[in-house]
Each structure stands twice: as structure tokens, then as C-alpha cells.
């Protein structure tokens, strides 16, 4: 893995269709960020990404899968912190 993201940022990793759509392997985005705002932010940066990529993708934070609906329930939704490593995981196709 590359070096840590700069202060006040987290790193977002892209794979497969997410890499193709953004034409990047990663982004460094300002933290903290409520996880419920992540897709909105990405859709703004990369118009069309939500429908083409995100709607069928899973999310990991520090290598753990996050259930977005569960993470947004309650009074305090999960917040992505400075230094976290978040990844967009499109439907897999090994073999």
C-alpha cells in the first residue's frame, strides 16, 4: 500500500469498474465524512457513477464490509475518519 493519506483525509480505493469509471486507482478525500454522504460526494465528482458502479457495489472501511443501511440507522451514522482506508467493491468475477 502507498503512504498514508495527508492529514485530514482518508483514502478511497477503486477496483475494476470503479477504476474504469473514475480513471483512477484511488482518491484522497476530506475526513471526517459520514458514510451516508460518500455516494453523494462521488456522484458529484463523477456524474453517473452511482447508477453505473455504486448501486451494485459494496463498501469496506479498513478491510471490513459496511452495511450502509445499518450504518445510517440511529442518531449517529458511521463516520469515515482521517487515515481510514475505504474501498468500493464492485461485483466480483474471479476464476
Amino acid at each position: 500500500m502507498p503512504s498514508k493519506p495527508p492529514a485530514g483525509h482518508f483514502r478511497l480505493l477503486y477496483f475494476a469498474s470503479a477504476t474504469s469509471f473514475t480513471r483512477k486507482s484511488s482518491d484522497e478525500l476530506p475526513a471526517p465524512l459520514p458514510i451516508t454522504d460518500l455516494f453523494r460526494l462521488l456522484e458529484k465528482r463523477y456524474p453517473g457513477m452511482e447508477k453505473a458502479v455504486l448501486s451494485s457495489s459494496a463498501i469496506t472501511v479498513n478491510l471490513n464490509y459496511i452495511d450502509i443501511e445499518e450504518a445510517s440507522e440511529g442518531d449517529e451514522p458511521m463516520v469515515i475518519q482521517e487515515g481510514d482506508e475505504v474501498a468500493i467493491i464492485p461485483p466480483v468475477s474471479s476464476g
Partner: peptide, 24 residues
């Protein structure tokens, strides 16, 4: 493995078609 492992296959068709990320 095919259902779960975080690996992605790009089929390269060449020409105008280009590549396609497959989903199992």
C-alpha cells in the same frame, strides 16, 4: 471463490468493443 473473492476479470475484446469487467 467465484462468488466471494475480491478479484475482477477484464475481458479484452480489442477494437471498438474494448474491455468489459465481468461479474460472476
Amino acid at each position: 471463490v467465484k462468488e466471494k473473492v475480491e478479484i475482477w476479470k477484464l475481458e479484452e475484446f480489442g477494437g471498438e468493443e474494448g474491455g468489459v469487467w465481468r461479474a460472476n
